[in-house]
Design a protein around this nucleic acid. Structure first.
Lengths: 270, 270
DNA sequence: CGGCCTGTGAAAATCCTGTGAACGCAGGCA
DNA sequence: TGCCTGCGTTCACAGGATTTTCACAGGCCG
């Protein structure tokens, strides 16, 4: 979700000689850098919106492996590169299996370190949408990334930031069933904890606001045991597959088979 | 989804010692391997559906850089790993900038090479999300991973998640007889307890839904004492082997001799 | 013919989602 | 500073949907 092209890198190392040189080159290349010589809690890494993390686990002592493990599993989209001194094959293999993307041995040329960091972050960026700022239309909805807001006609749905990002993601993947974990990963930016219900709660809030402003459309469909799918449908076509003769292509977008296994919301309470 | 997907790796190298050892380990790990000691045209690589390519550009001589460049740009989803002898920082940087994902220096431990290849493909798989989303067609069926659902024409079979995953697995292994244990392992994700009948029950549910939506085809075949096989067959060819003159290659996939020991289902009750 | 193995229907157990509400946090404001 | 408000997170519960388990019947094989 980072529209920016620049690489955001954090370095956890206390080898001042190496870090200094690397920092100079990185800044020359236009990278945004964050240095520390101590462990940064994975939680805080989330807030930094990094593309990559370069770390020498030596200075984390015993906790090194555990730290790498946590970072790798909490931030699967982060490029994780270890740069450290002598190591055994077994150590490198362990690290790589844990989720480390590249393991560089010191002493190393900063240029190579940078090239490897680039290689690690490269693909993630590829195919990144330039659609970031293009509005999306769906049913009666108009989703406007430039305003972080969705509109029905001229009136805004009054979405909070998270609500908007969730809606935007769903709308961009219109028609696809997205699993909760995927949604969480892409909206929140890190891995979903087991049992977290945040996605459900935000879906409910979205549905309330959608229902309030565009009551004659159904936008978000639940897929039991999987996740959610965004697909604007005019209301009143419930179970069209049971009476195929009665309904004649009202508005259903082309190549959109009638959804099933969908919990058609019934909006009980007002 | 499927947790363990097999890695398809091609090796372009003529260092027989290294390659032999690597191949042994890779096969032990269940990887699918393809070796050559000459350059493979990028065009052919496409057809091989590889996850990763390990190459020693040394044996490509002058063309090495050009080759890496073409492979990297033509196959952006392929993990590209160079494994070669001595090299300068400049060479490594050049390669990495070109699109190489990792650059390993020989001599290297095959275990590390494998771990690095894994790391590269892991990162790659995360990047492109729709790798697993290719629809499968079978008989009148259309199996759509993006919807977690199967369709006959426009109407969905209304499969639950487990049902869908079972069907998807069977369909991907079309024509193969899969043992219950295998099925359970791959759909449920862990070993089947002795005496568990879940697979049978889900096969029944699937058959019911298939029969309901596509009554003129037989999809799932029972192999007594073994397991099940998915193979769409138009109805009415029951016992075609008994009256070979009557039936003429309606739709039966090639190279599928009528299996003996097959229980042709007869759908007793309605 | 007897011992498995599979098909089947239904009950029981489990899991999943919708929902309302409480909680904590941070920023705005007096 | 202290209060108020908006927002995101977490919890617990209820109603369903789904999965598992069971018992039995019928088929397959030697």
């Amino acid at each position: 979700m980072n529209p920016q092209q620049t690489t955001r890198l954090a370095v956890i190392d206390n080898d001042s000689g190496f870090v200094t040189v690397l920092a100079k080159r990185a800044e020359a290349a236009g990278w945004q850098l964050h240095q520390t010589s101590g462990g940064v809690p994975p939680r805080d890494l989330v807030a930094m919106k990094l593309n990559a993390l370069l770390v020498d686990p030596t200075l984390l002592g015993e906790e090194g492996w555990d730290y790498l493990d946590r970072v790798a599993s909490l931030l699967p989209d982060l490029g994780l590169v270890v740069c450290t001194g002598r190591s055994t094959v077994a150590q490198r293999v362990r690290g790589l299996r844990l989720g480390v993307d590249d393991w560089i041995t010191k002493p190393c040329h900063p240029e190579e370190a940078m090239a490897r960091i680039e290689a690690v972050t490269r693909r993630r960026r590829r195919g990144n949408r330039e659609s970031e700022a293009t509005p999306v239309a769906a049913g009666e909805l108009q989703i406007r990334p430039d305003r972080f807001q969705a509109f029905v006609g001229d009136v805004a749905l009054d979405l909070t930031r998270r609500e908007f990002e969730l809606l935007h993601l769903l709308a961009e993947e219109r028609g696809q069933v997205l699993e909760r974990e995927t949604i969480y990963q892409r909206v929140w930016g890190y891995a979903m904890a087991h049992g977290d219900r945040s996605v459900d709660v935000f879906i409910r809030k979205l549905r309330q606001k959608l229902e309030k402003h565009s009551p004659s459309w159904a936008y978000i469909h639940t897929h039991f045991g999987i996740g959610y799918r965004f697909d604007p449908e005019p209301a009143g076509i419930v179970k069209e597959e049971l009476r195929p003769a009665a309904v004649e292509e009202i508005q259903t977008p082309p190549a959109e088979p009638a959804p099933s296994q969908v919990v058609h919301k019934s909006f009980t309470a007002g």
